[in-house]
Amino acid sequence: MEMRARLRQVPLDLSAAWAIARKDMIIYYLRPNIIVSGILFPLFMFLAFAIGTIGGSAPPTGGTSEIAQLGALIPGLLAITVLFSASSIEPVSIPIERRMKTFDRLISAPISLQALVLGESISGTLYSVGIALIPLVIGVLFFGNQILSPVVLLLALFLSSLCFSSMGTLVASYPTENVGEVMSILNLIRFPLIFLSGVFIPLSSLPGWGQAVAFFSPLTYTSDLIRFGYNGASHISPILDILVLAAFIIGFQAFGNYLYRKFNE
């Protein structure tokens, strides 16, 4: 496509991406498997760590009272909430749409594959930001969490949500009509990330190899940026966190675009 035609297509693609995202919001946000994967799972994960913390079996997370200890877990809960909720929509919606043949409708429309991948990712992003606001507000109201930089925190939530929804869209490119198959692949990626990204276990407490691996995980930068938004402390650097998350987004989107094209051939 020549450059002028490409530029003409950009607003059309953005508008179509938004239409796809809205369609997903109406159809998939309240699906039981998305609620389980996107909301209940991070909640249970948090409770497991919370019980461990109160019982004294988990590493100290700062604070003196049990309430303060739980409050200190909220940034970690936010990070895994974003990871699980953002990456839960497309691995469910896309295999279902393949099975119902509505996916053919999307890939035969006069839009680019980028628009399709972006549209699918936007629905996961907005879902995740909405869900993440729940623990955030609970933390402020009931656990006395202070937010030093709300703008950075919101930016962290948005960038991380887009990053993990792009990852979910990428994994959902696997050409199957079976939701379980995609979720299995996704969980193979998501679960190790929780333990290798400084979410509940600080990076400084990880062994050397663990710290090295953590730098390849987008969740590390999510967790670091969220903590910076809360208390101004960053193990890496907020600027670097933002740049790396942006790089992951671009990488997931581009690779997703490639795989959807490849699997379609």
């Binding site: 496509m1 035609a5 297509q9 369609k23 109406i26 159809i27 119902m100 043949k101 509505t102 053919d104 409708r105 035969s108 429309a109 006069p110 839009i111 680019s112």
Partner: peptide, 19 residues
């Protein structure tokens, strides 16, 4: 994309969104 602008497609399956 330019080719698709001119076409409508009625797929073999009635692929409407049930929801």
């Amino acid at each position: 994309i330019e080719s698709r602008r001119h076409m409508g497609i009625v797929h073999e399956t009635s692929n409407v969104y049930d929801d």
